[in-house]
Design a binder for these strands. Structure first.
Length: 283
DNA sequence: ATGTGTTCCTGTCCGC
DNA sequence: TGCGGACAGGAACACA
């Protein structure tokens, strides 16, 4: 799925067409994604103004004028595409729904927002805005990596004593929000830390170094519009371009690009997920 | 409590 | 071209 940078890219793309605008029609084209949609979802969206579009971890949250918040998760393959946009304006022609277009929202400004998700690991739910933080999908999630609560002391304390490999630990959304397989691989490569190393056995200075690296990698990726491998698209349908910057992810067999390193990127499997790393410069 | 493996679903790619 | 298997930006869940 989209990881934090891809979700933020989608949120930014949706912002101008949704924020401050009213949903005039909601077409719910199947009863569920990963879980059943909430009762009366179409009715609870129709004629409601989107007051604010927020992101928490890999979730997009749309606060509505009704007092509800629409929670959206893109799963592995979810996309949100805008149609009806032309030369900065909207005309009212939209392409016919395609396969896996599951939810279609028409805005009063003429824009159409289509949620497409082939694998249906995505999710949508509605909850009262003042209870959104306590929603079962959100309540256990750790601090935002780009926020102040995520710092060196926090990370050190949370990794202390953990026997899981650092790769696995950083994928744990309870520890830090929004990292996924791509960005954990990229972060560990830049940090020179092996994904196999036990989280609790990494020298404190090296753990501390992870914090600015995580911030840097995520910020650069957001700046680039995320990474487009198979599914991710910006809301305009355009590709992100951070994938051209990968130093580890999906580079099996290719030379390591760390200055002075002569190693090559290997792929291993950890907890069922591919890890890409250089055994020579990542210790 | 932590750690790991399985599962949901569809599409694509690669080797035979 | 067809077929089977591996694999894919996630993460809840069941179980040691």
């Amino acid at each position: 799925m989209p990881e934090l940078p891809e979700v933020e890219t989608v949120r930014r793309g949706l912002e101008p067409v949704m924020s401050g605008h009213v949903i005039v029609n909601a077409d719910i084209r199947r009863p569920d994604l990963r879980w059943p949609f909430p009762e009366h979802m179409a009715g609870r969206l129709t004629d409601k103004r989107v007051e604010r579009l927020r992101r928490r971890s890999k979730y997009i949250l749309a606060d509505l004028s009704s007092g509800d918040t629409l929670i959206i998760h893109l799963g592995m393959s979810g996309r949100m595409l805008i149609s009806g946009q032309m030369l900065g304006q909207f005309h009212h022609e939209h392409p016919a729904p395609e396969k896996h277009d599951h939810v279609v929202l028409d805005m009063e400004n003429g824009a159409r927002v289509t949620f497409n998700d082939a694998r249906r690991f995505g999710a949508m739910d509605l909850i009262a805005t003042d209870q959104a933080d306590a929603h079962w999908l959100l309540s256990g999630i750790g601090p935002e990596p780009l926020g102040n609560a995520f710092d060196e002391d926090y990370l050190l304390a949370r990794l202390k004593g953990r026997n899981a490999p650092i790769k696995t630990a950083l994928l744990d959304q309870r520890l830090v929000a929004g990292l996924g397989n791509i960005y954990v691989c990229e972060v560990l490569h830049r940090a020179g830390i092996s994904p196999k190393r036990k989280a609790g056995e990494i020298a404190a200075v090296r753990v501390r170094s992870l914090v600015p690296i995580i911030r840097q990698v995520l910020s650069e990726a957001i700046e680039a519009g995320g990474s487009s491998l198979r599914d991710h698209r910006q809301t305009s349908g355009e590709l992100g371009y951070f994938q051209h910057t990968f130093r580890a992810y999906d580079r099996e067999g290719k030379p390591c690009q760390t200055t002075g390193c002569t190693g090559q990127i290997r792929r291993i499997v950890q907890s069922g997920r591919s890890s890409f790393y250089c055994a020579q410069c990542q210790r």
